[in-house]
Design a protein around this nucleic acid. Sequence first.
DNA 1: GTGAAAGCGCTAACAC
DNA 2: GTGTTAGCGCTTTCAC
Lengths: 331, 331
Amino acid sequence: MEVAREAGVHPATASRALNPSARGEVSPRTVRRVVQAAERLGYVPNTLARGLRTSRSFVAALVIPDITNSLFPPIVRGAEQVLSAAGFTLVLTDTNNDPDSERGQIASMRAHGVDGFIIATARWQDSLLDELAADGTPTVLVNRRTAKSDLPFVGAEDQDGVRLCVDHLADLGHRNIVHLAGPSDTSTGRERSSAFRAAMRMRQLPLRSAILECASYSEAAGAAGAARLRASGRPFSAIVAANDLLALGAMEQLAGSGLQCPRDYSITGFNDLSFMSKLTPALTTVRVPLAEMGAHAARTLLGWIGSDGNPTSLRVLLPVELIIRGTTSPH
Amino acid sequence: MEVAREAGVHPATASRALNPSARGEVSPRTVRRVVQAAERLGYVPNTLARGLRTSRSFVAALVIPDITNSLFPPIVRGAEQVLSAAGFTLVLTDTNNDPDSERGQIASMRAHGVDGFIIATARWQDSLLDELAADGTPTVLVNRRTAKSDLPFVGAEDQDGVRLCVDHLADLGHRNIVHLAGPSDTSTGRERSSAFRAAMRMRQLPLRSAILECASYSEAAGAAGAARLRASGRPFSAIVAANDLLALGAMEQLAGSGLQCPRDYSITGFNDLSFMSKLTPALTTVRVPLAEMGAHAARTLLGWIGSDGNPTSLRVLLPVELIIRGTTSPH
DNA sequence: GTGAAAGCGCTAACAC
DNA sequence: GTGTTAGCGCTTTCAC
């Protein structure tokens, strides 16, 4: 070790002096000498070598399905800030919504010795995550979770969000409310749709053929869902979409057959992606604290890694807020 | 090495058999035996150890100012796909627009032994990048570059883009065109504004007080720029904004004083962020192939890393396209 | 409080 | 074509 020679001490001593948790074992004088030598030399410890020795890399991986989906950048940002403040490096993996590529990338991350994972791609049945859970790799789920809830999860109060939407529409006088549901292989899809059912029942509103599942969370899927809705002849005056993209796709599709929002129907989204307030009419939607979710997931992961033991919290749901804008109006 | 024992060979032999570029030095029979043993054991090479030995980590870092700015996710995605296809891992660093944090993070990445950098945060004068260039760290600039162009750069034909805007507006009959310029500490700000000047001269349009520099590429800065424009009393019927966010901020500000677009003035943006087509009126803007820029930057970096020598191309500008939508109309 | 010695998992140089 | 040896840079016993 370069610094050791410069300070005239043994490498082991230099290592101790430079390592906050072993600094106590070294005399203050020596610490000072070593630290000064390190500064003089602009010494930067080699994290690879340290990791090889300690099997701790101070790297955390964040796995997301598609960074160009505006849902994820705030999550990434929240996580990044917490991690880098804690001296951790963030490795970002975009799986492109492909489970195979996800498998490979996670394997590669593990080979790189990452200390833990934050996963935003969980499917309802997810064998890969079951494996990670089984072998104790520190892993935190964010936004979506699996059916087996053996991994800590940071999400939002989706149930509240959907209830807020239904109540808002019902208060506006809507009775024929339908739900464009998210895919049933995601926890958000399942939970939002069961919350919809519950909220409708609570307001004693009709549920018959009121839920249409969409194949994915995309505008195209929203458009397809709206097309099916039209084709079914099912009367409706309001739509609760499981997310903003579905709402956008539905609006575009319905506009194609002459239905204008909010003139002919009302609609709500979910997530409050950026620019949703800039649309005309602006989208009424549920604001989800995405950055805080990312940050909280990162904190949970750090807690797990730090404790060398088990995760602290097993489920955290952050509060949401209904943002009322132009796409909902009295019936 | 675990696999070596299982296959009954020396660790070094196993290493050779597993390493594509050294496989030729081993007999096919042995290769087969080792590969099978590796599969049986689910062997995953330890990248840290390999990196420590070879000082190649197969990790590339991408440094961006703010992932929540929609400009960057497509770049990230493009880069990620090329890198992961080449067996590289992407480390993402969000500097939060803070040069100090950027310094620290880059230092930390180097300690982690990353093989190279893709940098999207270049300022016109950027001492950090000068240092990276000086000590030969493989580094590729994307989107923005520095004044000293000693690092390879992948950008867009900004000059073309601005000229397209000016020509389009001039063809529509506008004569009093002003430019909301980007900050002069970015190459894009400088180049777009000099392109504006050139294009205006070409069309023999008046340049006097036609350029207003904005403090940053944000909606707030665009609004401030528009406010200054109003206050100046300078007549204008069209605005060429240096990017979409500036255009949005300006539109909002001008709407506040009763000026509607395109009724009272025309405006163009730059980048064609997602959702720009969904606004009302939809924004006329210059589409930049962001994902391809990211991908190309990644390829350039891989080329440099692979060649062990110098970078291949020093400057690549990708073609842009004017997307004409509702914010521009005849005068 | 500090030094000595060993080793994390891998691969490059050198033997044979 | 394969085994031997050494060492990447660090940390962690174990002595003293």
